[in-house]
Each structure stands twice: as C-alpha cells, then as structure tokens.
Design a protein around this nucleic acid. Structure first.
Lengths: 144, 144
DNA sequence: AAAGTAGTGGGGAATAGTGGGGGAGACGTT
DNA sequence: AACGTCTCCCCCACTATTCCCCACTACTTT
C-alpha cells in the first residue's frame, strides 16, 4: 500500500499545474488520482484505488442517510479525476485553486494514504495552532 | 462503473441545448441517458445502464405499494430519453427547463453514478444551507 | 565531467464549448 | 393532397482551454 511521507514546496504555474513529487509518483501504482476538497482550506489527493473505496462509502451513505444528500453532492462536486502529464504534473482546476487558496507556492504534504495540497502559510498556522499538551499525550500513545 | 465528479458551468443555448462535459461523456459507456426531475429543483441525468436498475425498483414499488402509483407515474412522466448530438450536447425539453428553473447558465454537477443539472444559484443555496457540524461528522466518517 | 533525474516554463496542436444556418420529418390546417 | 409551421438534429465556423512535447536549469549519481 502506498505510503506518502514528507513535504515539498513546489510552484503552481500560470496554467494551474503543479509537479507531483517524484517520491509520491513512485509510491502510487497507477497514475490516476482524485483531487478534492473536504477539509477547508486544504485539497486532498487520493490514488484511484483508495478513492474507489471512498466512493462506495459515499454511495451507501447517500442511500441510508437521506439527510446527507447535500454533503455527498458537495463532495462529489468538489472532486476531479486527475492524471499527471509526461512531466509528472497535475492540473488543478480553477475552482479548486480558489477554495484551496492556492497561487504561486504550493505545499505538497504526504499524509500516509493520501497527499494534501496546502497554501504554505495556512499549513503553518494549522500546525502551530495545535495544543502542546494534547500532542504530548497523543505522541506518547503512538510512540511510547 | 462510471464515476461522475466535478462541476461545470455551461450555457443553455436558445435551442435548449447544453454541452455534456467531455469528462462525463468519457465516463459513461454508451451515449444514452435518461433525464428527469425527482428532487426539486434539480434535474438528474442517469446513464442508460444505471437507469435500468432504477426502473426495476420503480416497477417493484408500483407492485408492492399500490398507494404509490401516482408517484411512479409522476416520475415516469417527467423523464425523457436523451442522446448527445455530434457536438456532445443534450437537448433539455422545455417543460424540464421550467421545473428545473434553468435558463442561461447551467451547472452540471457529478454525483458519482449520475449527473445533476442545477440553476447555479439554487445549487449554491443548497450547498450553503448545510449544517457545518453535521458535515464535520459526516466527513470524518467518510475520510477519517 | 558526463549522464541521469527532477522541477519549471512555454509554444503549438488537438480538443472542447458556443452559436447559428439549414434540412428532414412530424403534425395540423386548409 | 398540399402547404405551412415547429422541432430536432446535422453541419460548419469561431474561440478558449487543455494537454502534448520540447527545452532549460539545478542537482545528484556514477
């Protein structure tokens, strides 16, 4: 299974393309991904394989929890299929650049089974705003 | 299986045609669709294949819940077969434009196994009127 | 030092959306 | 039966976007 780790700060060019770090390309078998926003302001990139499972979950949700239809729709509407070009870049559609607040530098962050795209300063804030005590507890449970 | 994702804002021309996004055309094998309204004010477009299953469900419904005959009839009456023309556009009959409140710009939204046609501002309202807390719960169940 | 790998930039061909002319067929009227 | 109207669909033309490809640079590897 893919395991995406590390952070890479790359350029979003004028055509809306970013390079996918070659380490990430190597990790994922196949070159099909789904890019979407579900957690503002970051964008999330799933390899096709794990997206298929997510899609299943969305479908059962839509069927069993009719009240959630708008949430399912919002997620599907924010998503796109993407495939890297020969240079290993993916195209970020304009509307996702907007909601992700991306222009110029983009931070590509590995998150184990997925990749997140962040505006570098939003990422810093998100990381810094953690509680130190909580992190202590958390990390000792994981690594202790 | 087809997986329709993303949002596209296209023009409904004076003849009542809208382009089906090429991404959607690629997803669906075959070029036969069924367009109808079952959830106001949106219109829904099913690829032939998944419509066949829906039709089965309608039939068993009409058989097992005789009280629902009028609902089944209403749905069947609102539905049309549509096929894109050589330019990839579908024709939206006038009565569906009315009930869908479509004129000028139309938002075509992927909803996994189907495509929805929305008046852009109705869509925004529908999306914005969701509860933030509910979505938090929902999305952590899906993506957590 | 040469060769390979990786990120960045941009030209140009192919694809996709938009608008409208015009012909074929359905239908209703005379 | 002939005529007119309306609808639908094919075709052509124009424009914008997308994506394929080549080139340049920096850095690493051999």
């Amino acid at each position: 299974m893919a395991s995406f780790l590390g952070r890479y700060e790359y350029q979003l060019d004028q055509k809306g393309r970013v390079s996918l770090p070659s380490a990430f390309r190597r990790e994922s078998e196949g070159d099909r991904f789904v890019l979407l926003q579900w957690k503002s302001p970051a964008l999330t990139l799933f390899p096709q394989a794990s997206w298929a499972q997510t899609e299943e979950r969305l479908l059962t949700f839509r069927r069993n929890q009719p009240g959630a239809w708008a949430d399912v729709l919002a997620i599907a509407a924010s998503a796109v299929d993407v495939t890297p070009d020969k240079q290993g870049r993916i195209l970020v559609p304009a509307w996702l650049q907007d909601v992700g607040n991306l222009k110029g530098k983009v931070l590509l962050v590995g998150n184990i089974d997925r990749v997140e795209l962040w505006n570098p300063s939003s990422f810093d804030e998100a990381i810094k705003s953690r509680s130190y005590e909580e992190f202590e507890k958390f990390s000792s449970q994981i690594f202790g």
